[in-house]
Structure formats: structure tokens, C-alpha cells
């Protein structure tokens, strides 16, 4: 699964421009599903039929945070804005790669108070160009962080773990899955990082009875880090709440009971910031009971996001068990 993850994280896919990763996923999963299609906003929808079964929508988002060029000056330096939650602290000195292949480094205007983190407006991208003409990008071009995959053994590091690790979990689940008690919609969504937009329309189109997002969550196990209980390597997290939603307590119970029965390690997650595609599913149409299976991840939205391969493996195992276990509550 490490190789699957490596391939996925190295493909650039900023919000709204997910084509490359979508093509790769499609190529892999097309033989594994009964039906596959792309919706008007670019979500990839793959279906595993099951007659007379409740419909479960599983979602992992394809996009990663990125940036867009707003201006190229006479000397060939380019200004940019963020697509999604790019944090200035991670930018200075960073390298970016554009969909057209161009690469550049992020520089910053002279900063009088060097203790302060300058905002993105004070940064620019240097392509080694010396005029507008030989600058390899133009206004509107998009990029992502450029950083190679790092294998630390049990733990791996890369940009775009958020949420290619979720994508990898869904693909691996699909590969190992035999039977399910659900009709399954595997949705690889677009534009999550700019406000769960892809999942909003996908949920409307799919009309699920039940929803489950697979995404990353933060951890509280680094020096003077977040005050939260989730730790890397202690198992996938079952979300109870985040800033965007309260996970359906019935779904939470179903997930916990299934994990306990199968003796799969899990953690109870409360995230005080952020949100996932699950919020969009929960509020779709007449409402959908929805939960989130989270992969603990350190340094979210930095160019080096770290996950533990055991958590990833356990997430797949738990998901497989869930797909075989009928949920214990009545759907109306």
C-alpha cells in the first residue's frame, strides 16, 4: 500500500484542477466496479451494485491545497494566492510545481520584523526568469508544493497526504472487498479544501442513505502541540465532532462497536477546528446520517504531512468490516 500511496501523493491536483489524479484513480478502479462516471464538477463516482440494499456513500477528496498566479511583474516574478488553507509559515523557501511542469521557489519581501510571519501577499515566486516574456507561467496557472515522498519505515511523509491517504484507503478497500451489505458509491471528490464543494453536489446526485468520509485528522502528540487526544499509530480515529459538524451518534456507535468486535484499535476524535466532506453529506437533501473515519496525520497542510502505515492498514480493515456489517439503526 505504500507504493499506492507514493504514486498518489506525487501527482499534483490543486482544488478545481484534479484531472491528473482522477485519471490515475479511474485507471486503477474501473475494472473493480460496476459503473463509473464523472459529474459536472469533476467528482469521480464509482458504483458497486447491490440490489435492495441501503446506499452508502464513501468519500475521500482528490484535491490538495495549492496556489494560483495573480500577476507576473516586469522582472518575471509572480504573485499568487492560496487555493485552500495554505499557511504562510510553510511557504518561505518552499518550492512549488505547476501543472505545466514549471518549478519555482517562494521568496519574500524584506521583512522588517523578522519574528513575524509575513502574509502570502508579501511573497512571490521566482522562476529564475528576468522578464514577463521568459517567465514560464501566466496569470491563472496553478501549482502545488513540490516535495518528494519520504519513507521512514512505519511512518511516511509527503505533501498531499491530506487526503490521498483517504483515497488510498478507499482504493485498497475496493481491491480487497468481496461482498457488502450496502450498495456502495465510492466518491473521489473535488474542491474539498476550498469548502467541501465537490461533496455537496456529489451527495445530491448520489442520494445516499448513509455517508462516510475518509479524511485526515490532527494529532496532539507533538511537543507543545494541539490539545487533543488523538495520537499517531494508535489506530484510525472515529470522529465525534469537528468545527463543521457533529458526527451522527448512531454512526459513531456503529463504527465503535464494529471496531471493538473486530479488535481493531481505534481512537475517539474531537477536532476543534476544520471540517470534512461529511458535513456536506449530512446536510444533503432530507439529511443523511454521516460519520468520518479519520487517519491521524501530523503537520496537516505543511508540505511534509506524516502518517503511520499501521493506522492506514487498520483503517482499511475497519472499513472492510463496516461494509460487511449492517448498521444497527433503522433508516427512515
Amino acid at each position: 500500500m505504500k507504493e499506492l500511496l507514493r504514486t498518489l501523493v506525487e501527482i499534483p491536483a490543486p482544488p478545481g484542477y484534479e484531472g491528473l489524479v482522477r485519471n490515475q484513480i479511474r485507471e486503477w478502479i474501473e475494472p473493480l466496479v460496476d459503473e463509473i462516471r464523472i459529474d459536472p464538477l469533476g467528482n469521480l463516482l464509482a458504483v458497486r451494485n447491490q440490489a435492495n440494499a441501503p446506499r452508502l456513500m464513501l468519500v475521500a477528496h482528490m484535491d490538495e491545497i495549492g496556489l494560483m498566479i495573480t500577476h507576473v511583474d516586469q522582472q518575471g516574478f509572480a504573485r499568487f494566492v492560496a487555493l485552500g488553507g495554505v499557511m504562510p509559515i510553510h511557504c518561505v523557501g518552499g518550492r512549488v510545481r505547476f501543472l505545466n511542469g514549471a518549478q519555482g521557489v517562494i521568496g519574500v519581501e524584506k521583512n522588517p520584523a523578522s519574528s513575524e510571519i509575513p502574509p502570502l501577499e508579501k511573497m512571490f515566486i521566482d522562476f529564475g526568469a528576468s522578464s514577463v516574456e521568459d517567465c514560464p507561467v501566466r496569470v491563472g496557472d496553478v501549482a502545488v508544493f513540490d516535495r518528494p515522498f519520504l519513507d521512514l519505515g512505519k511512518r511516511v511523509v509527503s505533501k498531499a497526504m491530506d487526503d490521498r491517504v483517504g483515497v488510498a484507503v478507499l482504493i485498497e478497500t475496493l481491491r480487497r472487498l468481496e461482498q457488502s451489505v450496502f450498495e456502495l458509491y465510492f466518491v473521489f471528490s473535488v474542491q474539498e479544501e476550498v469548502g467541501v464543494r465537490g461533496a455537496t453536489v456529489a451527495a445530491f446526485g448520489v442520494e445516499p442513505d448513509l455517508g462516510l468520509a475518509v479524511d485526515v485528522t490532527a494529532t496532539g502528540d507533538t511537543p507543545k502541540g494541539h490539545r487533543m487526544e488523538v495520537r499517531l499509530g494508535k489506530g484510525p480515529a472515529i470522529k465525534i465532532r469537528d468545527a463543521g459538524m457533529i458526527a451522527d451518534p448512531r454512526v459513531v456507535r456503529w463504527m465503535i462497536q464494529t471496531a471493538e468486535k473486530a479488535k481493531i484499535p481505534y481512537q475517539r476524535e474531537i477536532l476543534e477546528f476544520g471540517g470534512t466532506d461529511a458535513r456536506a453529506i449530512q446536510l444533503s437533501r432530507s439529511g443523511v446520517p454521516t460519520g468520518v473515519l479519520s487517519i491521524p496525520c501530523r503537520y496537516i497542510h505543511a508540505p511534509s504531512e506524516m502518517v503511520d502505515m499501521e493506522d492506514v492498514e487498520n483503517a482499511v480493515r475497519l472499513l472492510l468490516r463496516l461494509l460487511r456489517t449492517s448498521h444497527p439503526f433503522e433508516l427512515m
Binding site: 459529474d39 494560483m68 498566479i69 495573480t70 455537496t200
Partner: peptide
């Protein structure tokens, strides 16, 4: 690109997109 918004913000999210 940047801040601000137009009616597109809610239109593109209606129905199945």
C-alpha cells in the same frame, strides 16, 4: 484570483453541480 464572490458561489453547488 482572491477574495470576493458572486452569485456563482451558490449556483454551481446546486443539485448535482
Amino acid at each position: 484570483a482572491g477574495g470576493g464572490s458572486t452569485d456563482a458561489g451558490t449556483i454551481h453547488l446546486q443539485r448535482a453541480g
